[in-house]
Nucleic acid binder design. Structure first.
Length: 486
RNA sequence: CGGGGAGUAGCUCAGUCCGGCAGAGCACUGGCUUUGGGAGCCAGGGGCCGCGGGUUCAAAUCCCGCCUCCCCGACCA
């Protein structure tokens, strides 16, 4: 592994470090097709845990799952002008099928608005049909020029929420509600702190009125757009003629939203917590929260130790802990330690003759903050309770550490452009600055520094002393968070 | 599309300059010994040397053409 201390300044090292974790933790591998990715079982399990948590949160907010087709007629994508302009360049188009040229080309969905809205039009007639609150788990294809495992792949897995509402107010509430759901998930499950806020027009979803986003800061001090929630206004309703009849008998366009997070979150997880030894997983998203390593010197000990290990496993499973006993033969305990450390398992439980003798197990943490013991001896009876408490602590400490890291890489109140430039050039990180509101100025800063306005932060993230000047010197219209980003 | 690098065993690569039996480490298979921080020994399996053409008695190696991948840009809600 490359040296972690070099990670903030040398993006090439970080890139190599990232790719190595993806491979060595067996999260993903390359596919024969350019930019596509094979998600391996261990990596997929992490995604499944994410799916489970998110899906529960969607259900709790009244959403239902549905599934819409992979292909959309090209003419359908063309219906919303801004939408087609934004997506057409990166779509894959099927021109031949069934041994013949198709009369109308089919677009492999880059997102599903253009297939969902023609269909929802048939479902929605009356104010009584609203709101429609749908979610879809699916794959989408976006033919990006440059790809990176999990962060930007040609095909990726995601969920996309699509809702229709009777009023603008309701749609806006929904947009904000789901942004909040994402934030809760990212902080409480991924232990990845985020800044929420509004995107500028240039970064807005193609076809949306407003786009909100969750922005996280990775360990190399680059930003990651972790999730977006769009208020689509009546744009898609107009484009696909989706109207409903009000109580008063009027026919009016519905207001809609869409929101999504993807397997990119797995990449975010790696770059938020990983270290020189490999992956570090927050307990809530770890395929195994604990792995038991049995240790023995001879056959007699082997029997005793394995018996004790399976007893511990049974106790932990009964307590709802995801646990695995590593019984692989012909592998030293040390080799197993390294193996599971690379894979980010939060706690390793060593069970050897000494432990059996003492009726205890040795718990060794993967993530060890300052002034914390790496190893803790747990009594064999009651190990489950102690371990559960330890996992809760680890989850909290990971979030706290990630938040500290982000804060120490955050600069506020910067008004001097050359200072800003060298900050982006050298350290990176989040910079809170003013913005005049001009998109030309936004573009110039991007060209000069490769940094972009990540969000216009929500109130709770704003600085106490908001800058009065934009980086260009003009009066500031609002505070913005700038960073180089993935 | 521009700049740079690389294609040889599952992986990482040496060998190419200077043509002469296809190599190493890791991984894999079998056996024995091991196991509290990456095990050791022995035996074995595995190759269109990216593709096509040329030069030569002889090409992984030299020449010509093509293809692919990686990195840095351009692109990216």
């Amino acid at each position: 592994m490359t040296n972690g201390r070099g990670l903030t300044s040398q993006s090439q090292d970080f890139s190599a470090w990232y790719n190595e974790i993806v491979q060595q933790a067996e999260l993903a591998s390359q596919s024969p097709v350019r930019g596509c990715m094979v998600i391996r079982p261990y990596g997929y399990r992490i995604w499944e845990l994410m799916q489970g948590a998110l899906d529960g949160m969607f259900k709790a907010t009244g959403h239902q799952n549905a599934y819409f087709p992979l292909f959309l007629p090209k003419s359908s994508l063309d219906r919303e002008a801004e939408h087609v302009e934004g997506f057409a360049p990166e779509t894959a188009v099927v021109t031949h099928a069934g041994g013949a040229q198709l009369e109308e080309p089919l677009v492999v969905r880059p997102t599903s608005e253009a297939i969902i809205w023609p269909i929802l039009g048939d479902w929605i007639h009356s104010y009584r049909d609203l709101p429609v609150l749908l979610n879809q788990w699916a794959n989408v294809v976006r033919w990006e020029m440059r790809t990176r495992p999990f962060l930007r792949t040609t095909e990726f897995l995601w969920q996309e929420g699509h809702t229709a509402h009777a009023s603008e107010t309701e749609a806006e509430e929904e947009t904000r509600r789901m942004l909040g759901v994402y934030r809760t998930f990212m902080e409480e499950w991924m232990a990845m702190p985020v800044i929420t806020g509004l995107k500028t027009d240039s970064e807005r979803f193609a076809g949306a009125l407003r786009t909100y986003a969750c922005e996280a800061l990775m360990k190399d001090n680059k930003g990651l757009q972790a999730g977006t929630s769009h208020n689509l206004g009546q744009n898609f309703a107009r484009a696909f003629d989706v109207r409903y009849q009000t109580e008063e008998g009027e026919h009016v366009y519905v207001w809609s939203t869409s929101w999504g997070v993807s397997t990119r979150l797995v990449g975010g997880l790696i770059m938020t917590h990983g270290d020189d030894e490999g992956l570090i997983l927050p307990p809530k998203l770890a395929p195994y929260e604990a792995v038991i390593i049995p240790i023995w010197r001879n056959d007699e000990q082997r029997g005793v130790v394995l018996e004790a290990a399976s007893r511990v496993r049974a106790d932990l499973e009964a307590a709802g802990v995801r646990v695995h006993v590593d019984v692989r033969e012909g592998m030293n305990p040390g080799a197993k330690y390294y193996d599971w450390e690379r894979r980010g398992v939060p706690v390793r439980l060593e069970v050897g003759p000494r432990d059996v003798e003492a009726e205890s197990v040795m718990a060794v943490r993967r993530f060890v903050p300052q002034a914390t013991d790496r190893k803790t001896q747990l009594p064999m009876s009651g190990a489950a309770e102690r371990l559960r408490a330890m996992l809760v602590t680890i989850q909290d400490e990971l979030l706290a550490a990630a938040r500290d890291r982000r804060e120490s890489a955050t600069v506020r109140g910067l008004e001097d452009y050359s200072e800003f430039r060298s900050l982006m050039e050298e350290q990176g990180g989040f910079a809170y600055t003013g913005w005049c509101g001009d998109s030309g100025c936004e573009q110039k800063v991007k060209d000069d520094t490769k940094s972009t306005i990540r969000v216009i932060p929500d109130e709770e993230f704003r600085s106490e002393d908001v800058p009065v000047h934009c980086l260009c010197g003009a009066p500031s219209m609002c505070e913005v968070v700038r960073a180089r980003a993935y």
